[in-house]
Design a protein around this nucleic acid. Structure first.
Lengths: 186, 186
DNA sequence: ACCTGAACACCGTTCAAGT
DNA sequence: ACCTGAACACCGTTCAAGT
């Protein structure tokens, strides 16, 4: 990549992070290009879709989430691991307001730049769920897709001003439905 | 209202119902006006906001939902009533794709034309929840707002192509968390 | 009293023209 | 090899001008 290109690339990312943090995942791409002092076509060259831009912004958090799953698999009891990771996954979807809608759409669209990321989250969750199920700690009439759906639904609640304050409590309600022994009190 | 005005009003509603059924609650208002052979200003005169239009479209279903709550209060056991009504409420939010997002936003906005409707849904649900709680059948660490949030979250799942197929099952999972005795098998 | 549609300020996306 | 921004086809919202 040419020197000016890499400079543009990272500058767009910096500005995009600020704008999307402030305005949500549906922020105007035109606005981002303007604030980055870059032609609109330059933004589209580096990030052909809104999903591609968001995927790059979420990359590091996504890697942390995957790593966390690995750690929890050896460091925590199956039930604790499942709950702790699920909580982190909800927080992940909440990193940028409105991101969870794009991720949900990406699950149904193999061509989306976010599809792989979402599949990774599902796989990581599915493994922890299976582990808890094998230990007889979690209900067996659920799979990874169900877990992901519940995580996404809680992420969506977090995005709604009218529901955000209840999302934590409802996480516990749903968690108690997944674990046979219920959730441990904090 | 003048004769041409009433005619326009009902014609806009008819067309809007078709378009929004086909394209979702975020359908283009311009497109609706065009297809109704009506000036854009005429649509705005009758329905000053998208919420006002949607509220009118949802009116009859909303009344049915309120009526259902009243009926269930006398005809069914507290737990059955709560679950049956909640199921109907999820279906209500799903009447038009994308409507649940507008309703969620309306809960936090007193000025929204949908605010009153959403409050009615919450109140109806809260009564059925209280009744089940008083009968010792439902967990007591939830209120009407929590119930509404869960209903909205399930409605949102229904709207996502990637999650819609699991929404029914997840309704049962969540329902089993609300009722002490769990859900009765179908 | 009601309707119309142009006007304004925005979008996302593409692509010919420049360096 | 990369960047630019005009061009196109859309939005939502408002409001002067018409009947």
């Amino acid at each position: 990549m040419r020197a000016d290109a890499t400079k543009n690339y990272s500058h767009i990312l910096t500005v995009a992070r600020e704008v999307i943090t402030a305005q949500g995942a549906d922020a105007s791409l035109r606005d981002i290009a303007r604030k980055a002092d870059v032609g609109l076509g330059t933004l589209y060259r580096h990030f052909p879709t809104r999903e591609a831009l968001l995927e790059t912004l979420l990359r590091s958090s996504l890697d942390e989430l995957t790593q966390l799953a690995d750690e929890l698999k050896t460091s925590s009891a199956p039930d604790d691991a499942l709950i702790a990771w699920s909580r982190a996954a909800v927080a992940f979807t909440h990193h940028y307001r409105g991101a969870v809608d794009l991720m949900a759409a990406a699950m149904a669209d193999e061509a989306s730049a976010l599809h792989a990321s979402c599949s990774l989250v599902r796989s990581a969750g599915a493994q922890l769920l299976l582990r808890a199920q094998a230990a007889g700690m979690a209900r067996t009439d659920m799979d990874g897709a169900d877990l992901l759906a519940l995580i996404a639904a809680l992420g969506w609640l977090n995005d709604q001003p009218s529901f955000a304050s209840q999302a934590d409590h409802l996480f516990n309600v749903i968690g108690s439905a997944i674990l046979y022994a219920g959730l441990k009190p904090a």
